[in-house]
Design a protein around this nucleic acid. Structure first.
Length: 699
RNA sequence: GGGCCGGUAGCUCAGUCGGUUAGAGCAGGGGACUCAUAAUCCCUUGGUCGCGGGUUCGAAUCCUGCCCGGCCUACCA
């Protein structure tokens, strides 16, 4: 078999925050694949780096009163520590703020420029004159130009859903300085992606490099289809520069202009490879300009766009190898819900390691990962159960129940008749390997567990503990344990990409380090057996609960710290009731208004007299509310995800009674029902205390 | 609205090219064992394969319509 040369990357984590269990899906997935390749004897390097540029870094550095360089150095050290804690085996962990990256950015830019893909256009953008910076969309809030809702984000309105540019916002406010930004025009550099269209269609639609659903998505949303009724879609120019001040690399020939973080971030893959090459006496072109090398990128679905259109375009133009395969995964949910800081499911890598074995997370993710882009749910019960039942109860149990019987004698000199158990498991290795190769780790773990399920009954039927009592059965005892330990060893090899620690311990127990997949095909005989030591500790529910509690506590403390709340012990404050500051942080207070402003809004108590689904609408319920007497009106409310219509009938709610009626697709909406919450299923209707009656005004 | 994925036992999921009586693990029930981390082993309960139609000698599997869920994406406002 020929030895493949494989370069693997995982997406570069942003140097703006700590690694959490959501990130780890990707780094563990990638690490398993890398370790599998190495175990198979392929030459495989795993490259990563911190992504360090952009406005968010500058903002955090300013807030902490220190230079960006100091912040990113500290964060990188934390990232590397966390990854090491989960046995993620990078060959090089670099930084996009490195001399290697600067040089490569220059090289690639020059090639793109030379190819005639760069053009300049003026862009109007909001500028914060207090913080002296241009403002990205998410750093601006203001009044929606369409519906007049206040305190809306810079790119779309959460009330009416309209999309717009931040410069269209009425009364825009910078969240950096609370000042009113002004519109300034500045030249930006663009890459004309449309010129690469033919190549991009070919590359993305070939069916070799991308998962089918991803190819499909690109076709539907960016490329279009020449043969369809709508025809091909135009590819938009890509804005790759940002005017000063910006933490990043200045663009040669354009003083005061910097590459947008998404230009230099993927180049960081190459730059980090360069560092590895320099350290190991290798040549970069042997890895990035060599058709014999397979380049594999692993990344999350949120950054699909950058990696499947811009990045291949950049590589192609600059004469680097194209990714052989781009593996895209979904997001992590915990107990079926998005990770949340306030409920403690937003678990940092560091916190996890204080309470639980990283092997458990590696194994759980492996058991859930498929080649598809689906999201992955961590259910606590399943997490604990899988680890305890599969690994401790079945796999490790094989060793822990037989090793001590052969501690004196070692393994038998020749492999005894085991009724075909070993041969069967050896044969399964081919299928297991294919599952790993295909990134179908769920299948791999399933196949491995099937083998484990056959092994324990063997030990039971042979009863080594009975054999031990009869000196005449000494040989049989040694044989039975030799079989059991060999089956265990085989499982440890198959699991080695997922559980490197277990493989190491298994190697130590049998005095034969596990370093190659092929070792699963031949039984081990005649070696001494070391004293058995615990290999995996069972997880208690309490461990998990403690971790969640600590995470929730950390989130509260972090929120308090950034709020700088002085009155910690004050009675009746949010602190005393342990309320998180998250909600307020997510949506800062609107600008001040007068009582006259407020009274313009006529809030009334109303009773829901009828509530029904709107079949064509995904989010809306049609409510009929009564303000008393025969004064009823129809209101559409986006609460379908949170409330059953039946449960609403009879309830008192608060409505905006003098809101200008609005014609919606499904009918006229004559008001608005007041609710709190973050949207989706997290919507909480307001109710008056008992005693209030429909029609009463709320003031 | 469009695209994609899914719906099989209480839960998580297998189920190959359409082929016998639809499987596993976990959970539940009963028993056994005592080497092993309250681990293990045996037996067992449990299914209208989302629903309807079609193709076929034969459908969980293929086709089609619908329902439900998830993800992506848009429109309306």
């Amino acid at each position: 078999m020929t030895i493949r040369k494989i370069l693997v990357t995982a997406a570069l984590p942003y140097a703006n925050g700590p690694i959490h269990i959501g990130h780890l899906v990707e780094y563990i997935q990638t690490d398993i694949w890398v370790r599998f390749q190495r175990l198979r004897g392929n030459r495989c390097i795993y490259i990563c780096a911190d992504d360090t540029h952009g406005t968010a870094i500058t903002i955090r550095a300013r807030k902490e009163g220190r230079p960006e360089e100091e912040l990113i150095a500290q964060v990188q050290a934390e990232h590397e520590r966390d990854f090491a804690g989960f046995q993620v085996s990078f060959d090089n962990y670099g930084s996009t703020n490195s001399p290697e990256n600067r040089e490569l950015c220059h090289e690639i830019w020059e090639a793109i420029d030379k190819a005639g893909l760069v053009k300049t256009k003026n862009v109007d953008q909001l500028y914060d004159t207090v913080a002296n910076t241009f403002l990205a969309d998410r750093f601006v809030r203001g009044t929606c130009p369409h519906c007049g809702a206040t305190n809306q984000p810079g790119d779309n309105c959460s009330a009416c859903g309209a999309t717009y540019s931040p410069i269209e916002l009425l009364n825009p406010i910078s969240i950096l300085s609370d000042s009113q930004p002004e519109i300034r025009s500045a030249p930006h550099l663009f890459i004309e992606l449309a010129q690469l269209r033919e190549f991009l269609v070919e590359y993305t639609q070939k069916g070799e490099h991308l998962q089918k659903e991803i190819a499909n998505y690109l076709k539907g949303h960016f490329l279009g289809d020449e043969n369809s009724a709508e025809g091909a879609k135009p590819l938009k120019d890509w804005d790759v520069s940002r005017p000063a001040p910006y933490f990043g690399f200045e663009i040669p020939g354009h003083p005061g202009h910097y590459w947008y973080v998404w230009f230099d971030a993927p180049i960081g893959y190459i730059a980090s490879t360069k560092q590895w090459c320099d350290r190991n006496g290798e040549r970069l072109e042997d890895w990035w300009k060599n058709p014999d090398v397979e380049i594999h990128h692993f990344l999350g679905k949120d950054i699909t766009y950058f990696h499947t259109l811009f990045w291949p375009g950049m590589l192609k133009t600059a004469g680097f190898s194209l990714p052989h395969k781009i593996h895209i995964h979904g997001f992590l949910t915990v107990n079926g819900a998005k990770m949340s800081k306030s409920t403690g499911t937003f678990v940092k890598a560091e916190t996890f390691l204080k309470h639980l074995d990283p092997a458990a997370l590696r194994y759980f993710y492996a058991s859930k990962l498929t080649p598809r882009v689906d999201d992955l749910d961590l259910s606590v019960e399943e997490f604990i159960n899988k680890f305890n039942a599969d690994l401790v109860g079945k796999v490790v149990n094989l060793a822990s129940r037989t090793a001590k019987f052969v501690q004196e004698t070692g393994l038998s000199a020749s492999y005894p008749d085991d009724g075909g158990l070993f041969a069967h498991a050896a044969a399964a290795g081919k299928e297991i390997a294919q599952a790993y190769e295909d990134c179908d780790f769920a299948r791999a773990t399933r196949l491995i567990c099937e083998i484990a399920d056959r092994a324990n009954p063997f030990v039971d039927s042979e009863q080594p503990w009975t054999l031990k009592k009869d000196p005449a059965q000494a040989q049989r005892l040694q044989d039975v344990c030799t079989i059991s330990l060999n089956l265990f060893r085989q499982l440890a090899i198959y699991l080695a990409p997922i559980l490197p620690d277990l493989a190491e311990r298994a190697g130590r127990l049998l005095n034969d380090p596990l370093i190659s997949w092929d070792q699963s095909q031949t039984p081990l005989v005649g070696t001494p057996v070391a004293k058995f030591e615990h290999m995996l500790k069972r997880i208690e529910v309490k461990d998990f609960e403690n971790m969640i509690e600590e995470s929730a506590r950390e989130a509260t403390e972090a929120a308090l710290e950034s709020e700088g709340t002085p009155d910690r012990a004050g009675e009746g404050t949010a602190v005393a009731f342990q309320d998180s500051a998250e909600a307020l942080q997510n949506e800062p207070l609107a600008e001040e208004c007068t009582i006259e402003d407020f009274t313009k809004v006529d809030l009334r108590v109303a009773r829901i007299v009828k509530a029904e689904h709107v079949p064509e609408a995904k989010k809306l319920l049609r409510l009929t509310v009564s303000l008393g007497g025969d004064n009823t009106r129809t209101v559409f409310a986006g609460i379908k995800a949170a409330y059953d219509p039946e449960a609403l009938v009879g309830r008192l709610v608060i409505v905006v009674a003098n809101l200008k009626p609005r014609a919606m697709k499904f009918g006229l909406s004559e008001g608005m029902v007041c609710a709190a919450g973050g949207g989706g299923a997290e919507v909480f209707l307001l109710s008056p205390d008992s005693g209030a009656v429909p029609g009463q005004r709320v003031l």
